[in-house]
């Protein structure tokens, strides 16, 4: 059997996966508990449009994903204001826009294999530049999450009370959205834009079954996300399957086992 760590591309993939395994649940915990899980989907589809635009214009695809997904989350906030009592409409409109743009722009992308690798993830394609970009974006997400830990908790638990206590709710909500956009973009290379939203949600769903506090839920969700991403890379390498698919399927399998085990108890 080949030694998985004998390859530089695998070392890069493991480092990137380890970082994504931290940042995805950091931001996932907040969006799941705020019942905004669908935003991950809308953002990832917009990120895919940014990737297609990047491949078309020569801008780095991950940077394209960052720009488009940030525009998407700001767009969700803008549309949400017009439909105050039906805020989920905003998510669907932006997701549809992302899918539509991807469909149109993909027609102008020369090498569709590149776009496919971003849709379903790839472990061989991570360049040094993407590695540095992933590290930079991950450090930014981890730093902001730690700095705003109390604010994120209070807003997720009770937004009205947080506002009354003086938490700058609107600003923090926009920061949450931008962090989601960055996380989705950073993870799109290895997990795949179509599956990245599940990495925001599944580890948190697993952690919510056994977590005994907000803090422990966040820590446990990071442990699960690391298990899924690293396990997914092993599966991808040895079984020759797409890493995004293996990461998500391991996550779903663990979630199902936890649900069965804890329901029996």
């Amino acid at each position: 059997m080949n030694n998985i760590f004998a390859y530089d591309f695998m070392i890069r993939a493991f480092i990137a996966a380890a970082l994504i395994g931290i940042i995805a649940p950091c931001i996932g915990t907040t969006i799941v508990l705020k019942r905004l899980s669908a935003i991950g989907d809308a953002t990832s589809h917009s990120a895919l449009a940014g990737i297609a635009a990047g491949l078309m214009t020569g801008v780095h695809p991950v940077l394209g994903a960052v720009i488009f997904s940030m525009a998407a989350v700001l767009g969700i906030e803008a549309v949400r204001k017009s439909f105050k009592n039906y805020s989920e409409i905003a998510t669907v409109i932006i997701m549809s826009t992302g899918i539509g743009l991807t469909a149109v722009l993909s027609g102008f992308v020369g090498n569709t294999a590149d776009l496919n690798s971003f849709m379903f993830g790839s472990i061989v394609a991570i360049s040094d530049f993407e590695m540095i970009l992933t590290v930079g974006l991950s450090v930014a997400v981890i730093a902001v999450t730690m700095l705003l830990y109390r604010e994120l908790f209070y807003i997720a638990f009770d937004e009205d009370a947080a506002e009354l206590a003086g938490v700058p709710v609107k600003t923090v909500n926009i920061i949450i959205m931008l962090l989601t956009a960055i996380t989705v973009s950073a993870a799109s290379r290895i997990v795949g834009a179509l599956m990245v939203s599940s990495l925001l949600v599944i580890p948190v769903a697993c952690a919510m079954i056994i977590g005994k506090s907000y803090k422990s839920t966040m820590i446990i969700s990071i442990v699960f996300a690391e298990l899924f991403t690293v396990g997914g890379l092993f599966a991808s390498f040895y079984l020759d399957v797409k890493p995004g698919g293996s990461i998500v399927l391991i996550g779903v399998a663990v979630l199902v086992m936890l649900l069965i085990f804890f329901r029996r108890r």
Partner: peptide, 27 residues
């Protein structure tokens, strides 16, 4: 401020008593 309990929170939210009470030290 204390609101009606039913309007205050989602009962499946994983938060301890300590986390909830300490949060209001923000003010």
């Amino acid at each position: 401020y204390v609101a009606q309990k039913a309007n205050s929170f989602n009962t499946s939210f994983p938060a301890t008593v300590k986390e909830v009470v300490m949060a209001n030290l923000y003010s």
